[in-house]
Design a protein around this nucleic acid. Sequence first.
DNA 1: AGTGAAACGACCGTAGA
DNA 2: TCTACGGTCGTTTCACT
Lengths: 161, 161
Amino acid sequence: MSTQHSHGSVSAANGAIDDVSKAIIVQLQEDGRRSYAAIGKAVGLSEAAVRQRVQKLTDSGVMQIVAVTDPLQLGFSRQAMLGIKAEDDLVAVADRIAGLDQVDYCLVTAGSFDILAEVICENDHDLLRIMTEIRGIEGVLSTETFMYLSLRKQEYNWGTR
Amino acid sequence: MSTQHSHGSVSAANGAIDDVSKAIIVQLQEDGRRSYAAIGKAVGLSEAAVRQRVQKLTDSGVMQIVAVTDPLQLGFSRQAMLGIKAEDDLVAVADRIAGLDQVDYCLVTAGSFDILAEVICENDHDLLRIMTEIRGIEGVLSTETFMYLSLRKQEYNWGTR
DNA sequence: AGTGAAACGACCGTAGA
DNA sequence: TCTACGGTCGTTTCACT
């Protein structure tokens, strides 16, 4: 870490990612199972070098390679975003909500809601149950439900365009 | 497709996924690059059989294996959910919003907003620009912004618990 | 749909610049 | 941090069930 010679580092001291690593990420956003050799050919690096950089990127949490699924095709036909008003420690309340299995996405926001939570359920019965559960959580003042009618865009390839 | 012998199919006629395929998906949700051989060992199937099922699952859009990145670590420090009220054909309006590069997630909802859109930006300047752009889209009546303060949960492993 | 086997290619550790 | 190389393991194709 103390010295650098002819080559740059995967991430600079400030945590920025160089163009080569971005190119590698693009390759893996297109196909998470693309071989390191093929990626190396595309970005102009040896197979081993690609492997090292992918390792660092995943270890540092910049990137993860995972299967993402379509809830509808797996039988989860009810999705909703919940806008939540809360009191006291918003992070603590959000973490309690995030602890529920049916919540896949939860964050603290600035705006007329304090917390947003996305829930994925099999049916209306499940959705009602999880909503009731969230309303019962300590610190939750109110919830408003936005039922998903039609998903128009969902992209995972961020930071590389 | 017309006959079945001793083995089941990857997806039933109604589109449901059997338990073996779910087990494969779980493996790939844990690690998208896990070898077919290792998955086969875990789920009790040969490598070739695992590969065939993965192929079908990805071809049919039930699953995709991709790199997902952390916007913050890639220099995109401003995220927000926009609650949008719109008129006329909501799908058409949502698709126009979805066409913007900075929008990574966009859907039509039932509730006090007609459309929800998540935007990922490098800075406040970009965020303001994209908000202005969305407000200018035909059919958009109003937008309300929920700035992201703290992401507490983001899970990709859906449909397999 | 699944199995098994053989040829091929990818992956991984190590060494050296 | 990169390239180079060899051993090991995964992948692919094919014939068969």
